[in-house]
Design a protein around this nucleic acid. Structure first.
Lengths: 111, 111
DNA sequence: TTGACACTGAAGCATTTACTTAACTATTGC
DNA sequence: GCAATAGTTAAGTAAATGCTTCAGTGTCAA
């Protein structure tokens, strides 16, 4: 379910926005309420809630409401999925380059 | 220069689109021309060029034109930068959880 | 040199995004 | 109870995005 392309789509889209990345950054240092998340951002609380909803839909952030405060925290599994996608592609490419290097070295030896 | 926030912004934004991720995926398996990139995509060549320009501006893809064909390839350094951003945040969070776990285990011992 | 090929660029258009404000609900502390 | 707090929801809007089509520009091959 974590490698579901639709979910991956939501995650990368969520990470595409600077404000949302700032929120993720803040949350990486520990849980926070909606207002705490909003504090450093130059936008209305409402806008922050909308960003937060996206982050939650993407699976990157999990929240729970106790009383009137909603506490947010990072979901490292989701982060790992995005990380994994990138890593995979990079490795495929780099292995390719290695093989190419080996091939060139070999043909050079034989010349 | 790779951790320049503006560049990071462009990279995540570039990765947010499914078509562009598909292009990166294709390129991870080896270089390709614009038409080759376009082939599996259900959109005009022109649209593909526009996506490609974004990918190039983000630093994720490098291209060079020889004669009339533009050959594209992945820039693994850029991929690594995006990967690194995510990894960093995830690790900070997970280290936090570990410390919290240690703390809880300790206080439990003392009870 | 002529026609096909591989793009490129500009203009236009529909949709989505990132906000805003304003009105509202549910908790909490006094 | 009542005001302040914390968040939610809806509606509206301006700008950005992801396309399209069409009219090019070079390059190559016969």
């Amino acid at each position: 379910m974590l490698h579901d392309p639709a979910q991956l789509d939501l995650m990368f889209q969520a990470l595409a926005d600077p404000a949302r990345r700032q929120m993720v950054d803040r949350l990486s240092r520990g849980p926070a309420s909606v207002s705490q998340l909003a504090e450093p951002l130059a936008m209305s609380l409402s806008a922050v809630v909308q960003h937060l909803n996206l982050l939650e839909a993407s699976g990157l952030v999990r929240t729970q409401k106790v009383g009137r405060v909603r506490t947010c925290q990072i979901e490292p599994k989701a982060l790992r999925a995005a990380e994994h996608w990138i890593n995979e592609r990079r490795l495929v490419w780099e292995r390719r380059l290695d093989r190419l290097g080996d091939f060139l070295a070999e043909t050079k030896d034989k010349s």
